[in-house]
Design a protein around this nucleic acid. Structure first.
Length: 367
DNA sequence: TAAACGTGGGC
DNA sequence: TGCCCAAGTTT
């Protein structure tokens, strides 16, 4: 450990810090659905949902999820389509694929009991260092660090740490610090209190230092540099992709949808047939011809696009121009395609961009 | 290590 | 509008 950091830790009144922090947490913590009990399965589900996702967004998903899958066995038995559907709109869909896979492993290999050791729990898919520490401390009372973005922000200020928190290697520095200051009698409260402080008081911009229960321990506050911390380099800008999509209806009123690849972006979700808007595909007739080959049937697209959907991901943006059209003839769709009624369509999981396409289609085109 | 991986909210 | 941010993990 860096010598300056070690000195700062040595100078810290750790017991007083713990007491101030824990008392504040017990008094001020939010009433959140995953704080009603410490069932390891429920803690696990909540921690996966909360990765890179706001509390307000997670709450309704968490409630729905546990209503549908109340026990670890119930979730283990779920089929892949319903698993994806309940995650629809939450983003980072590999989270739920990994969670499902890991839960099945726990049920078969650990008799349904979530492992309580760092070594075993860390082997589970989707359980990284943060989530491992969170489950161990919150569900089992094990004094492991659970270092997330909140903890790095809070401790960078309290301990005056100028390491770049955008770098993967930096997390270890904060884990070492937490190992020195964690309250070993109440690791669950301690870890949650650090995160809660980051969420409510020690916020990224304009922290509420005058309300902070541990400001007397905060080196950044003493030095008046709390707004300069944490140090975080920013990522580069996103790429742009132009797409063409088609909402196609048969004369029997069914719609053509397609399952995305099991790898990469939005894996396994469903979408309206889409192509990149390259040199060959920029014309409506070229798109129709392409679709005809895909479904081996006649495809007729309307003249103009009925909507344009712009969607921003964390690492790229899509601009989708969307046509409405019809399919006719003896339709034999390929493996990953499906013809469904409008009611059936709603049972499948779509990315938000294609939900938007569907809503617009229903509103201004035919339904 | 850097990049991929979603979405919605705040300013 | 555009950029940053939110209880990260995988490759």
């Amino acid at each position: 450990m860096n010598e300056q950091l070690q000195n700062n830790l040595n100078d810290m009144a750790i017991e007083k810090f713990q007491k101030d922090l824990l008392n504040w947490f017990i008094r001020e913590q939010r009433d959140l659905p995953w704080r009603k009990d410490s069932d390891p399965y429920k803690v696990w589900v909540s921690e996966i949902m909360l990765q890179q996702t706001r509390v307000d967004t997670v709450i309704p998903y968490y409630e729905r999820f546990l209503k549908k899958f109340p026990t670890i066995e119930a979730f283990a038995d779920a089929d892949d389509e319903s698993v994806l559907k309940i995650w629809e709109g939450l983003g980072y869909y590999s989270r739920v694929r990994n969670l499902h896979s890991a839960v099945k492993e726990v049920v078969t290999q650990y008799d349904g009991k979530v492992p309580n050791t760092l070594k075993e729990i860390s082997k589970l898919k989707g359980v990284g260092p943060y989530t491992a520490g969170a489950i161990l401390s919150i569900a089992y009372g094990v004094p492991e660090p659970a270092v997330d973005g909140n903890v790095m922000r809070v401790l960078s200020r309290i301990l005056l740490i100028y390491e770049d928190i955008a770098k993967p290697s930096t997390r270890k520095i904060f884990e070492e610090a937490v190992r020195e200051i964690i309250n070993r009698d109440h690791p669950s409260y301690f870890n949650q209190a650090l995160m809660e402080l980051g969420a409510l008081i020690c916020t990224p911009t304009s922290p509420s230092c005058l309300l902070c229960p541990v400001r007397e321990h905060c080196l950044a506050f003493s030095a008046g540099v709390e707004k300069d911390l944490p140090v975080k380099t920013r990522k580069k800008s996103t790429k742009h992709v132009d797409l063409l999509a088609a909402v196609l209806k048969t004369d029997k009123g069914k719609f053509l949808i397609r399952k995305r690849s099991s790898k990469g972006l939005l894996a396994n979700l469903w979408e309206f047939p889409t192509v990149e808007d390259g040199e060959f595909m920029q014309m409506r007739t070229a798109l129709a011809k392409y679709l005809e080959e895909e479904v081996d049937a006649g495809v007729l697209l309307e003249t103009g696009t009925f909507t344009k959907v712009d969607h921003v991901f964390s690492h790229l943006t899509w601009s989708i121009n969307v046509f409405a059209g019809s399919i006719s003839g003896d339709i034999e769709v390929r493996e990953n395609y499906l013809l469904v009624t409008k009611e059936e369509l709603e049972e499948y999981a779509f990315p938000v961009s294609h939900q938007t396409i569907w809503k617009t289609y229903k509103k201004k085109v035919k339904l």
